[in-house]
Simulated scan of single mutants.
Amino acid sequence: MPRVRSDDYEAKSHAIMDCAAALFAKEGYPSAKMQDVAKACGATKSMLYHYFPTKDDLLFAMLMEHLERVVQGVEEAIVLKATPREKLLTMVEAYTQKSTQSRRRHMVAMQDIKYLPRAKQTPLIELQRQLVDRVAALLREVNPGLPEDTYKPYTMMLIGMLNWTDMWYRPGGTMKPQELCDRISRLFLKGFLAEKG
């Protein structure tokens, strides 16, 4: 039997995750069955099980990849040689771009992590925690000297705004992606920078 090339394997597993994300977003994770995913992908169940032995494995891989990409985008923005405000704008752009590229995965990540067993939830929750920590560190740079317990609520408000944007925003609409990022950054900064230590 010929050995499957790594890039072929990656491409097929990504295609399966994309099909599954669309199905999970439409039908809901609990209702979707592996045979439905196979049908949506134009694959056999046995081929699907070769890549993902269980539906939980498929959901876990999808969410892990998505969250890793978002965290990486945020980290890249934070280490830029730029002013804190410029870093924030870059972070908003990176976060929005990463989630838009995998809009359905993002929706699934927000809604379906709770269906995974605890052992599979734990590394995903850790990635979410890393994301919160990175954004909070950036907010400390943007407005230093605030009481420490101020940063976490603002971090969660910003992440919440970015997460829910994916539910309503349509890139092909009248507001272009760059304008959306600029508006989010301005709206957030006006309130956050009004906070005094």
Rank of each mutant, 00 (worst) to 15 (best):
E10C: 00
A194F: 03
G160K: 03
E86R: 10
D57Q: 03
F52V: 09
T100S: 11
L131G: 10
I78M: 07
M34T: 01
T90L: 04
P177N: 12
Q121H: 03
E65D: 13
K12Q: 14
Y51Q: 14
A15I: 04
M157V: 15
E75K: 15
S185V: 12
M161L: 14
K12Y: 03
D7T: 15
I78S: 07
A20P: 01
M107W: 12
A82L: 05
T90G: 00
N163Y: 02
D18Y: 03
L193A: 06
F188C: 08
E27M: 08
Q35L: 09
T44A: 11
Y115Q: 00
E148H: 14
H14K: 15
T155W: 04
A137I: 07
A21Y: 06
G173Q: 12
K33D: 05
D18M: 05
V70F: 01
N143I: 07
R85T: 15
L59E: 05
A38K: 05
M17P: 10
W168F: 13
K98I: 01
V4W: 01
W164K: 13
Y169I: 03
Q178T: 13
T174Y: 06
T90I: 01
V71H: 09
P171C: 08
L88S: 04
L187Q: 08
D18E: 10
Y169L: 04
F52R: 07
L131W: 02
I159L: 15
A61Y: 02
H50I: 06
R186Y: 01
M91T: 07
S31A: 13
K81R: 10
P117G: 01
V4A: 12
R5D: 10
T174W: 08
P53L: 06
S6L: 15
T100E: 12
K39T: 06
M47A: 12
E86M: 03
K81E: 13
M110Q: 13
D182I: 00
D36G: 05
A21E: 04
I78Y: 06
P123L: 00
L189A: 08
F188W: 09
Q178H: 14
L127Q: 05
R186K: 11
L124Q: 06
E27D: 11
Q178S: 14
K196H: 08
K55G: 07
T122I: 07
D166N: 15
K55Y: 07
I159D: 00
L88I: 08
G42H: 01
L139K: 02
R104K: 13
P123V: 03
L80Q: 12
W164P: 00
L180G: 11
D133T: 14
E68K: 15
E68T: 14
P144Y: 06
E148R: 15
P144H: 07
Y9H: 15
E76T: 13
V108G: 05
L193C: 09
